[in-house]
Design a protein around this nucleic acid. Structure first.
Length: 501
RNA sequence: GCCCCCUUCGUCUAGUGGCCUAGGACUCCGGGUUCUCAGUCCGGCAACAGGGGUUCGAGUCCCCUAGGGGGUACCA
C-alpha cells in the first residue's frame, strides 16, 4: 500500500451500485462528499459497488456518470478516468478482498462457517420464539483444518464470518451525530465471503476505503448501523479509521419516509409533485420523448436534465436540504458552497423533498442568467422539438433571443420555451384557444366592431414600432371612450389565439 | 419482536439557558404596480409533539410517554 499522504487533504467517495438510476438523494450525498473534499483541495472518488453480480446491470452505470457530468460534479478518480488506485469497480478487486479475508482468518478475527442455511434458520427461529436476540451458536465454526475437513466430508460448504466480540461496546464519533455507542453483543457474525468465494459489501467497502485512502466516509444514515462491523473489520486488519458522518436521507414530499423511485404512483397523489411531473411531461411530449414513470421521474436526476432545469439550482436546493449556513443565507454559487459547507451544520433529522421550493430556486437561478445565456440553454429544446433546424442562421438566433427576452420568467425551465411553439409556426397555423375565442370575440358584441376600427387606425400608422403602437392604442381607447381591457383582450385573442400574453 | 436514531410554522430551516412577544426561506392569503397573466413591491396567516423535573429563568439540560424513521441478509 501507498504511504498515508502527509498533507491534510480530504478524500471522500460516493459509491453507487449500478442497480438503478441516479437518485436525487444519492446526488445530495455525493454533493456533500464533493463539497467536503473540494474545500480542502482534496479528491472526490467515484467507486462502483457492484459486488452483487446478480443485482447489477452494467447499462445502469451510464446514467449515473451522465448525471454527475451534467450536474458538474466531477470525480477526480473513478470510472472512465481511472486514477492511482484503479480499478474503481469492486467487481474487479476480488483478489484483493480475498487476500484480506485470508488475513482476517489468519489472525482469528474471522472463521470459516459450515452451517447450512436451514440450520441457521432454525437457530433464528428458536431465538425469535424465545423473544431474544439471535446470536449464532458457532456450532459449525471451523477453527482448525481438521475441523474443516470433517465438515467438508459431510458435504458442507463454507462461508467466512466475522468473529464479532460478544462483550463490550463499540464506540465511535460521528461528525454529525456525535458519539455513537453500541453493544458488540447486538452484532451478528456477519458473512464477509460467500460460499462461492466472492466477497460482500462490508468487507469490500472497508478494504477499498483503506486502499483509496479515504479520510471521510460521508453516507446516508441507513449505514449507521453498519459502522460497528466495518470498524471491526478495519481494526482487525490494522487500518486507521476514517472519520464517519451519517447524514439524514431525503424523504418523500410531506413525509419522513425515505424517497424511493418505486413509489412514484403514490407521490403523484401529492399535488405539488403531480404538478411537477405534469409540467415535465408536457415538455417531454413536445420533444417527442416517450415517458414512463420508470425513467421519467423527479426522484431521478435524468428528469431535470430532460426538462431543462439548471444544475446550479438543483445543487443549491439540495444543499439546503439538511444543511444551512445561518438563519438567512439561501443563495449559493458553487464556489460559495465549497467554501462554506461544513458537516457540523448538517441537521440530524430527515428532510422531505419539496417540489415547490426546488422550482423557486430554479426560477431564481434562471432569472439571474442573461438573455444570451438563456437563449443558449433554450436552443437544444427548440431543435429537439423540431421547431428550428440546424444549421441556424443569425436571424433565427436573434429571433429566439427576442422571444426569450419577451417571455421573461415565463421560461422557468429551459423546456418552457416550447410553450411558445406557435411563435415558430406559419401564420395560418396559429391555433386558437376556443374558450378564449368565445369569451373575447364572440360574446362581447362590440368586439368585432372595435377590432375593425382599430385595424383601420393601424393601417394608418407610419412606423410599426412599440412606441407608435402603444400611442395608437391609448389614443384609440380614448377616442372610443372604452377601457383598455375592452380592446386588449379581444385583440390578443385575435392576434395570438391565446388568452394570456 | 428486538436494537438504534429523530421530533421548531404545511415544507426547508435559525436557535447550544436570559438577545425568543421564536428569526429567515418556500407555499398560501391580502394590497400596491402593470393593458391581461406572470413578475415585482408592501403587508399578513402560520411552529417549539405531550407530560414531568432541574433552574431565579427552558425551544435550549434530564426523565417518561407518544409519534415518525432506520436497521435487523451468503443486499448495497
Amino acid at each position: 500500500m501507498e504511504s498515508v499522504s502527509p498533507h491534510s487533504a480530504v478524500r471522500t467517495r460516493f459509491a453507487p451500485s449500478p442497480t438503478g438510476y441516479l437518485h436525487i438523494g444519492g446526488v445530495r450525498t455525493a454533493l456533500f462528499n464533493w463539497l467536503l473534499s473540494k474545500q480542502t483541495g482534496g479528491q472526490f472518488i467515484l467507486r462502483i459497488d457492484d459486488t452483487d453480480a446478480a443485482r447489477n446491470q452494467q447499462e445502469a452505470l451510464a446514467p449515473i456518470l451522465e448525471g454527475f457530468r451534467w450536474l458538474g460534479i466531477q470525480w477526480d478518480e473513478g470510472p472512465e478516468i481511472g486514477g492511482p488506485h484503479a480499478p474503481y469497480f469492486q467487481s474487479q478487486r476480488l483478489a484483493r478482498y480475498q487476500q484480506e479475508v485470508a488475513r482476517l482468518l489468519a489472525n482469528g478475527s474471522a472463521y470459516r462457517d459450515f452451517a447450512r442455511p436451514e440450520e441457521l434458520a432454525a437457530e433464528r427461529a428458536v431465538a425469535e420464539r424465545e423473544k431474544r436476540d439471535f446470536v449464532y451458536s458457532r456450532r459449525w465454526m471451523a477453527e482448525t483444518d481438521a475441523q474443516a475437513r470433517q465438515f467438508e466430508s459431510e458435504g458442507r460448504v463454507s462461508v467466512v464470518r466475522l468473529k464479532i466480540p460478544r462483550q463490550g461496546n463499540c464506540t465511535f464519533t460521528d461528525l454529525v451525530r456525535g458519539e455513537v455507542s453500541v453493544q458488540w453483543s447486538r452484532e451478528q457474525d456477519h458473512v464477509v465471503q460467500r460460499a462461492d468465494g466472492t466477497c460482500l459489501y462490508h468487507l469490500a467497502s472497508v478494504v477499498d476505503d483503506f486502499d483509496f485512502q479515504i479520510t471521510h466516509v460521508v453516507r446516508a444514515v441507513e449505514h449507521l448501523s453498519n459502522t460497528p462491523r466495518q470498524i471491526f473489520i478495519a481494526q482487525s486488519l490494522g487500518y486507521p479509521l476514517p472519520q464517519y458522518a451519517h447524514i439524514p436521507f431525503v424523504a418523500e414530499p410531506g413525509s419522513k419516509v425515505k424517497l424511493s423511485k418505486r413509489k412514484i404512483e403514490q407521490y403523484l397523489k401529492n399535488p405539488d409533485f403531480k404538478k411537477m411531473v405534469e409540467h415535465g411531461s408536457r415538455i417531454a411530449q413536445q420533444l417527442g420523448l416517450r415517458t414512463s414513470p420508470e425513467t421519467f421521474n423527479p426522484v431521478l436526476i435524468d428528469f431535470y436534465k430532460t426538462v431543462g432545469y439548471l444544475p446550479d439550482a438543483i445543487l443549491n436546493y439540495l444543499l439546503l436540504l439538511g444543511w444551512s449556513l445561518d438563519d438567512k443565507t439561501e443563495d449559493f454559487t458553487r464556489e460559495e458552497m465549497i467554501r462554506v459547507f461544513s458537516l457540523e451544520r448538517v441537521v440530524k433529522s430527515e428532510a422531505s423533498f419539496d417540489p415547490k421550493k426546488l422550482m423557486a430556486f430554479q426560477q431564481k437561478h434562471m432569472a439571474r442568467l442573461s438573455v444570451e445565456e438563456r437563449t443558449t440553454r433554450v436552443m437544444p429544446f427548440l431543435l429537439g422539438a423540431g421547431l428550428l433546424r440546424e444549421p441556424l442562421d443569425s436571424s433565427q438566433t436573434a429571433l429566439v433571443s427576442q422571444l426569450v427576452a419577451a417571455a421573461g420568467d415565463r421560461i422557468a425551465v429551459a423546456g418552457d420555451v416550447l410553450q411558445f411553439d406557435d411563435f415558430f409556426a406559419a401564420d395560418e397555423d396559429v391555433p386558437y384557444d376556443q374558450a378564449a375565442f368565445n369569451k373575447r370575440l364572440v360574446q362581447p358584441h362590440e368586439a368585432g366592431f372595435l377590432l375593425n376600427e382599430y385595424r383601420k387606425i393601424l393601417t394608418s400608422i407610419p412606423e410599426f414600432d412599440a412606441a407608435s403602437l402603444e400611442m395608437a392604442f391609448t389614443q384609440f381607447c380614448q377616442n372610443m371612450n372604452i377601457g383598455a381591457g375592452e380592446l386588449v383582450h379581444p385583440l390578443r385573442v385575435a392576434v395570438t389565439g391565446k388568452s394570456v400574453g
